[in-house]
Design a protein around this nucleic acid. Structure first.
Length: 371
RNA sequence: GCGGUAUUGGUGAAGUGGUAACACGGUAGAUUGUGGCUCUAUUAUGCGUGGGUUCGAUUCCCACAUACCGCC
């Protein structure tokens, strides 16, 4: 399904662009941040919480839902939206390719597909590009991802070349069986830190004509300079009139740097994972609510934040919940962290509109200290 | 009153005549297409108190304190 992506404005100081795309849920603004809800739930928060936090598109995962409860169950429920009661916006399903990186060994990656060892019971599983698309079709997500391999960092040029070529062949196979007319399908650019492979991967993937393009294999252990190069190497070969999605990136500074380089969409587990580890984003850096210094701090996480958490709860109280291992801590922190990133992209959009993104970046980075 | 046994950090505890394991907890840190798991660093200048022996004692000896168990 064509997302009718439109560039509303191009920055005149960098590659950033302000855009919109359309689905049956309405018009969606980019740059955008998507919270991750791997197992048909954004951990610890309700769909009402997500709405309050200005979440729009959310992510779910093919691999996890394939194992539990199984795509047929979700299909019987009427699709993911009905199953999880999420009607605020579209759902994007990741293809399961990232699990190749985290669960499979290189020898288990073959032309036909990938042999996984289930993280639940160790059972051997076999996932192919066709199977991934078929599962995503049944899940009924609005945007499906092409099945890819996300190699670790670093690997040799030779390994990466083989991997990228195979990922392209997998993309072709997946596209061939993609039959869900109401579902968009995105291709994934790989190639690691190698400029020639990123270029090749981007050009060849674009030839297949997907509804959007993502840059994968980023933030897998490389340094910042390399990370930003990976984006720079791919962007010039992606079409202007299609969304660009940088997979798995959600550090606030990385989001800004990504937008400056021409990225439209981001997703990341960071806001919710950090919340489970008692961390909160603030404009002056990440803070750890477990820290003793907050035990008598009766101010909100951020004084001017409009999220549910900051409007009603103090750092001292949240710290108390964290120390007592109370579940509410994770919920309150998740809500704040998600809102922090949705607000960040709102500010980014405003900055693109005003052609002040570079100074916004400089200002943000100077205040956002790595503790 | 007499004998015996014990006393190590916030907790449970190991241990040795050469300067205090381990676990939990505490304090910090990591976390980027999610296992809430996990990982890393750090946390007793001191082994009930006071003496003695020794180059050196938490360790051996004596006394005392405290706790528990026997006996009158």
């Amino acid at each position: 399904m064509d997302l009718k992506f439109e560039v509303i404005k191009k920055s005149n100081e960098c590659n950033a662009r302000l855009g919109t795309f359309k689905t049956k849920y309405g018009t969606h603004k980019t740059p955008m941040f998507m919270p991750v809800g791997t197992q048909a739930t954004v951990k610890n928060v309700s769909v009402e919480d997500l709405k309050d936090a200005h979440a729009d598109v959310i992510l779910s995962n093919t691999y996890h839902l394939w194992l539990r409860p199984g795509e047929d169950i979700v299909n019987m429920a009427g699709g993911l939206h009905n199953f999880m009661n999420y009607h605020n916006g579209p759902i994007l399903t990741d293809c399961g390719g990232f699990q190749v990186f985290s669960l499979a060994k290189p020898k288990d990656i073959e032309e036909e597909g990938v042999t996984f060892k289930s993280h639940l019971d160790g059972k051997k599983l076999f996932l192919t590009p066709e199977k991934s698309i078929e599962i995503q079709n049944k899940l009924g997500s609005d945007i499906a991802m092409s099945f890819d391999e996300c190699p670790p960092y670093p690997v040799t040029h030779e390994y990466m070349k083989n991997s990228v070529e195979r990922t392209l062949r997998w993309a072709k196979r997946g596209k061939k069986v993609h039959s869900n007319k109401g579902q968009a399908l995105f291709g994934i650019v790989q190639g690691g830190e190698f400029e020639d492979l990123r270029k090749w991967s981007a050009e060849e993937t674009v030839k297949l004509d997907f509804d959007g393009y993502s840059i994968g294999g980023v933030s897998v252990g490389e340094d910042n300079e390399t990370k930003y190069k990976m984006i720079d190497y791919a962007i010039p070969y992606l079409p202007e009139n299609k969304v660009r999605y940088l997979m798995g990136v959600g550090d606030p500074v990385d989001i800004i740097e990504g937008v400056i380089r021409g990225v439209d969409i981001f997703d990341c587990v960071l806001p919710t994972r950090l919340a489970r580890h008692a961390n909160a984003f603030t404009r002056t850096g990440k803070i750890n609510l477990r820290n003793k210094k907050y035990s008598d701090d009766f101010t909100p996480i951020e004084e001017n934040c409009d999220c549910y958490t900051c409007k009603g709860y103090t750092k001292a109280y949240i710290r108390h919940l964290v120390v007592c291992d109370e579940m509410l801590a994770a919920r309150l922190l998740s809500i704040h962290n998600i809102r922090f990133l949705t607000k960040l992209v709102e500010d980014i959009r405003e900055s693109i509109k005003n052609d002040t993104l570079i100074s916004f970046r400089n200002d943000f980075v100077s205040k956002y200290k790595k503790n």
